Amino acid sequence: MTAGIDTPDRRGRTGLDRHGRDLTGNPRVRIVDVEVLSCDWYVLRRTTFDYQHRDGHWSREQRETYDRGDGATILLYDTDRRTVLLTRQFRLPAYVNGHPDGMLLETAAGLLDGDTPEEAVRREAAEETGCVVDAAEHVFTVYMSPGSVTERLHFFAARYHPASVAATHGGVIGEGEDIAVVELPFHKALDMINSGEIVDAKAIMLLQWAALDGPFTRGHPAGRPLGTVTR
Score class of each variant (00 low, 15 high):
Y95E: 02
E64S: 12
H53L: 09
D6Q: 15
R68N: 11
A222M: 08
L44N: 03
R54N: 12
H169A: 15
L111H: 12
T129I: 05
P117T: 04
G56K: 06
F156S: 02
V96R: 03
R54T: 14
D80A: 12
I193H: 02
T107G: 05
P100D: 03
T107Y: 05
A203C: 11
D115L: 15
L76M: 08
M192G: 00
I198D: 00
P27F: 10
H169T: 15
L75D: 01
E177Y: 08
V199Y: 01
E151A: 12
L37S: 00
A203V: 00
T7Y: 09
P185S: 01
A189L: 04
R60Q: 13
R88H: 05
E137I: 09
T47M: 12
L206S: 03
G15E: 05
E128L: 00
A120V: 03
R21C: 11
H154F: 13
S148F: 13
S148K: 14
H53F: 15
R81E: 09
G110N: 07
E61P: 06
Y160E: 01
V43F: 07
R46P: 01
R54A: 13
L112D: 04
M205Q: 14
E197P: 02
R231W: 13
G171A: 04
G114H: 03
E151D: 15
P162Y: 08
S59Y: 12
A120S: 15
H99C: 09
R68K: 13
R82V: 04
G25S: 14
L23R: 10
A108H: 12
A109I: 02
I31A: 02
R152T: 05
A3N: 10
R28T: 08
G102W: 01
A109G: 14
H57T: 08
V165N: 02
L190V: 07
T107S: 11
L92Q: 14
T48F: 05
T141F: 13
D22G: 10
H154R: 03
A203K: 00
